[in-house]
Amino acid sequence: MMTCLCDAFFDDVARATHEVLESLGIEVIVPESQTCCGQPAFNGGDWASARQVIRHTLNVFQGDCPIIVPSGSCAAMSFHGALLAHEKETDLPQVQAFGARTWEICDFLRNGLGIESWEGRLDARVAIHSSCHSRGTGTPEAIRTLVGSIAGVTLLDFTQPEQCCGFGGTFSVTFPHISGSMGRLKIDSVRATHPDLLVSGDMSCLMHLNGLAEKQGSPLPVKHAIQVLRDARVTPVTVQ
């Protein structure tokens, strides 16, 4: 599942996911009819619309292959949110089955495939922002383990890591002042560690944070965790 954000803005993240999986000998199928996981309407309170989109996605991803997503948020929507939206619906079992096959990409590499360390090299100080929707899943530890195992990587710990970046989907436009203030606090705590790279498992957080930082005149060097993994493996990268 490529996610609507990668479909629209971050094609290289979807591509990195594809390339990493292929490099591990996995056949990647990209259903053409996929659109979105349904989260915008679900979080926005329009569950009736959300269910229509979830059912479409269910249809597109029939079968029993694992469904891999380069987003902790979309993954959580599939194995948690969608179940909530369907808690009083008769097709709940199908939604549960769909959710049980869905993995965030790094969680899949670490806990699905059992990969504990990553080859390649990246000489960089890396700060990792755990996206909120991956709380309680295997994703945060998977990203730390895999990215942290790359030769040359120094992981940085910034303060108050449990604080949200302030994106929150439509929250970012419905509560613009609070969202912006939250993001600026996050940027300050990240910048205090002087990272070469800010890495996350969700482009939504990074789009919001870098969007704020760029508007302030100094962009953040951001990358999705799967891009870091791919780039380390394909050719050693040195970040200035």
Binding site: R135, G136, C164, F167, G168, F175, S179
Partner: peptide, 9 residues
């Protein structure tokens, strides 16, 4: 209930 980024903290 809208005043939340649903961060789960």
């Amino acid at each position: 209930p809208k005043a939340s980024s649903l961060c789960g903290a």
